[in-house]
Design a binder for these strands. Structure first.
Lengths: 232, 232
DNA sequence: GACTAAAAACATGTAGAACATAAGTATTTT
DNA sequence: AAAATACTTATGTTCTACATGTTTTTAGTC
């Protein structure tokens, strides 16, 4: 029986004892009702209970440590901590090894998020935010520097995220920013005079000052019109 | 000088050589212009170059392996692979160790996403989806079982995500689902007859059939009205 | 020479011992 | 009782050894 090359049934990279140990540890935390702050057994005990060597346990614990699930201190042992929900993604996005398909999907998520910002902006915006946006829009009108315009575009949208005051969201946006730089470059490209008119940052800002969430949603939709036209 | 208890300046858990090795490896991938499919040097060589033992390198590689950045095979060595952007978050959400603040922020993100779904739904919905939603809505009208209603509510919204055909988004929603079960319970609670009328699933479905993205956005906003009222 | 089967070489996977290091704990000293 | 000291302990790191599964090489057969 011959094996088809490139078959969808690739030989799964062998599941190592470390993989299993990591999974068993996570299951163990849940089944034992562990809570944040609780202390774990010693490495040797864990190794003994799982029937593996200390090396394996340490590799597994090292993974959990990276995710911020545990905090290990000499002599004191290991304690459970509140993990950083974005830690893994941050490392991955920094690497910039994602394929085109995934990037496309992430960009779609980004568009959805910005379309949903409205409800939160009007509840949380303050004068400081408005001043910052004012400054950005004013400089956009004055400058002729293309690179600067791109920078200002990024900052404008980043500021919108900031207004929500949602740290998870803000950090997520910061992580995506460098990845979608090229999209913004492209966006700046088509913003040439002569292109069809659209809702500008100035328009969005006016709505933030005098409008409401509903009008902001529609404006945002128009502001992103070009991106939505590319949806397949 | 006494140390304030619970001070914001907690002693940072010592940065181990494994932590450094992991970071150095990621930087190394970037600086050396590695691409997916490229092979890494042997563990011993990496250890030698970083001046650490093989154990330390293996703990670092084990972390990268968990994120799907590398694929290690016996004898063949390690090759770079496209990482799974959600792998880390998936493990963390499964654990359910997140604090109230983070959960609140994640729920806000979820609300934003659903508010932004509209543009994508109308481009990608097909008859199969409509039939599924029809079935859900019909059963919602018939059943009196509260638990079943909650289940149907979850399924309705999950189906909306499915329609986008965005795997990253769909998986993200699936990951969050068990975490926000309690929110849905609460939502079902306030959906008692007598409560203020609002946009129902039937209404949303009608819009998906005959409406457009703009009307869907407004409908979604009304559907979530109660949640938005809780925004501070 | 071409194909097949056995053998060797090899990198990772796992185990285990040993020691270093930091942080509690107990003991002694004043 | 307070402070200095020695001791104990669990993790951090290194090293050695061997198992395991692939790849490559060699040997063998037709």
């Amino acid at each position: 029986m011959s094996k088809t090359a490139g078959s969808p049934l690739n030989p799964i990279s062998s599941i190592t004892m470390t993989d299993q140990a990591e999974q068993r540890l996570r299951e163990y935390f849940i089944s034992q009702g562990y809570k944040i702050g609780d202390a774990l057994p010693k490495e040797i005990e864990l190794a003994s209970e799982l029937g593996v060597s200390r090396s394996v346990i340490r590799e597994a614990l090292s993974r959990l440590r990276m995710l911020g699930m545990i905090d290990v201190r000499k002599r004191r042992g290991t304690i459970l901590t509140e993990p950083d929900v974005l830690s893994g993604m941050e490392r991955i996005l920094e690497l910039n090894f994602l394929g085109k398909e995934t990037l496309k999907r992430l960009f779609e998520v980004r568009l959805m998020l910005e379309m949903g910002l409205g409800e939160f902006l009007f509840n949380r915006i303050d004068d400081q935010h408005l001043q910052k946006l004012d400054g950005i829009v004013k400089e956009e009108e004055l400058t002729g520097d293309k690179a600067r315009l791109i920078q200002l575009d990024i900052t404008f949208h980043a500021t919108l995220y900031e207004i929500t005051g949602n740290p998870v969201l803000i950090r997520f946006q910061e992580m995506l920013q460098p990845i979608f730089q090229y999209v913004l470059d492209y966006r700046a490209e088509i913003h040439q005079p002569g292109t069809a008119p659209e809702v500008t940052h100035q328009d969005l800002l006016d709505i933030l000052k005098n409008g409401n969430a509903a009008s902001f949603r529609e404006a945002m939709k128009n502001h992103f019109e070009h991106h939505f036209q590319l949806i397949t």
